[in-house]
Design a protein around this nucleic acid. Sequence first.
RNA 1: GGCCCCAUCGUCUAGCGGCCUAGGACGCCGCCCUCUCAAGGCGGAGAUCACGGGUUCGAAUCCCGUUGGGGCCGCCA
Length: 487
Amino acid sequence: MKLRVRFAPSPTGHLHIGGARTALFNYLLARKYGGTFVLRIEDTDELRSDEKSVKSIFSSLKWLGLDWDEGAMPDGTEIGSCGPYIQSKREEMGIYRKYADQLIREGKAYHCYCTPQELEKMKKKAQLEKKSLKYDGRCRRLTKSQIEEFKKEGRKPVVRFKMPQEGKTVFEDLIHKTVSFENRLLYDCVIIKASGYPTYNFACVIDDCLMKITHVMRGDDHISNTPLQVNIYRALGFDVPRFAHLSMILGPDGKRLSKRHGSTSVEEYRRRGFLPLALRNYLALLGFSTSDSQQLFKEKELEEKFCLEGCQKNPAVFDEIKLRWMNGEYIRMLSREKLFSMSLPFLEKKGLKVQKNERNIEIVALQQEKYKLLEDVPYLVEFFYRDVEYASDAVEKVLKKPRARAILESIQKVYREMKDFTEKEIEAKTREFARSNNYKTAEIFHPVRVSVSGRTQGPTLFKMLELLGREETVRRISIARRLLESA
RNA sequence: GGCCCCAUCGUCUAGCGGCCUAGGACGCCGCCCUCUCAAGGCGGAGAUCACGGGUUCGAAUCCCGUUGGGGCCGCCA
C-alpha cells in the first residue's frame, strides 16, 4: 500500500513553528518513500477559523517549499480524488452527520442534552469530591419522556460517542512504541456539536480514513486524543492508521513554544530575513537526527536521509542562536546575484532604492560572510548609498589619533592624483605612501576607513574605496577632515 | 488532582550491552590568518549519561521505583 500522509492545520492564525515542523516531517516522509502528501484544512471551529489564515498558511508552506500533492490549493481549487479537503465544505455535504447517524443507529453514539452550564456544575462537583472530571455519561440512558421534555425546552443536543468502559486501548506508535490507556478513564466525547459541526476528534478520524491516510504524524500533544480516535475508527469499522507522535518544541524556559518566547510564526521568520532552506534545515533537526549527527543538508539530502528511526521522543528547545548560525551558512552559499535579489526587499524597507547592476551586486556581496539575516544587509551597506554618519567611538578612537589629520590630508592628495582608482592600484599607492613616509599601514588604513564609512568595521578597505569611486572617497575624506577641524 | 509522555554537555543531538577515560553541532574561551569586522583553520573549557535499586562477567544502553519536566483532561484543534 502506498504511503499517504497529511498535514491538517486549523486556520486560526499564521503557520506556527510547531506546525511547520509537523508539515515538514510529513512532507519528508512522503518524499522519502514516494508517498502522497495531502493538505487538509480543519476549519470546524466556526468562531476562530478565517480565510485570511488559510491564505497565510498556504503562503508559508509555499515559501518553505513544502509542496503538497493533494488537497486544497491556494487558488481555491482542489487536487485529488478524496475531496473536498476543507472540512467546512465536507460538513455542508453532510459527511460527518452521515457517520454520526450510523453510530447512533448502531447504538454506538447518543444524543446528550446537557447544557454547558450543567456540565460546568458537574465538573465543579467532581472536583470537590476529588473524582474524575470526565463527563459521567448521564445521557446514555435517557427515557423517551425525558427526551420529550428536553425537546420541549428547545434544547439542541450534541452527539456523544460511547467510549468502552473497561479494558485497555493500546496502539503502537512508530516513535513511542506501545502506548496504552485504561478505557475506564476515557469518557464519552462529543462528536457533533450543537451547531451541527463535527468536533476535531471526529472529523479527523472520518477524514483520515476517507482520505486513505496510512500514517498520522503529528505533535505528541495529540497522544491523549489517540485512544479516543482509535475507538471511533473501530466503531466505524475503519482500519486504524499508523501513528507517529513527534515531540513538542519548547521555548528556552522549557515551556511549550508560544508568543511570549518571541517570533513563533513562519511569517515572522520570513520577514526577518531567514532563508526558507535554512529554517527548513533547522526545523528538521528539532526532533530528528542522522546517526552521524549531520547538521547541514544539501537540497534533496533531507528527503533522502529522513526516517522515523531518527525521530526523537523527547522535546526540543528552540534555539534561535543556532538558527541564526545556520542562516548565515545558507546566506554564504548563495550566489552573488541571488543574495542581491533576496536582499532587495530588505533594502527597500529601509528606504534604500538600489538598482540591480554589477556595482550594487558587488557592494552587497562584499560582506556576504557577515550577514546572519537578510535584515542585516541594509545596515552593513547603507553608507555606500547615504551620507556618512560618524560613529562616536570611531571618531574618538581612530580619527582623533594625533597623526590622523595630517595623514588624511596627504593620502587624500594621493588619491586625488591617481589615474586608475582600482582596488589594486589604491592598495599599491597607499602602501607606497606609508613606506615612503614611515607610517605603519594601520595608521593609514584605519582613519581612511572611518572617513569613508564612519565605522571601524566594514568591508575590505581598498575594494570599498574602489566601489565608492575616487570622487566620493576624496569627498568623504574632506568631510572627515572638516569634522576634525571643528572638533 | 487523574491519566499519558519524556529524561546524555547551557542548547540540538550521536549512542541502541563491551569500540565510551561518552562523539558531533550551536554558543563560550584561546591561538593562527589578517587592513577592521566577519568568515576560515587549530585548540580548550563544558555531561559523576536526573537519582536509587536491580538484571548481567560487563549498563548511558535492559527492568523496577523515585524525582523533575512537559502534554492532555473543551460543544478548541
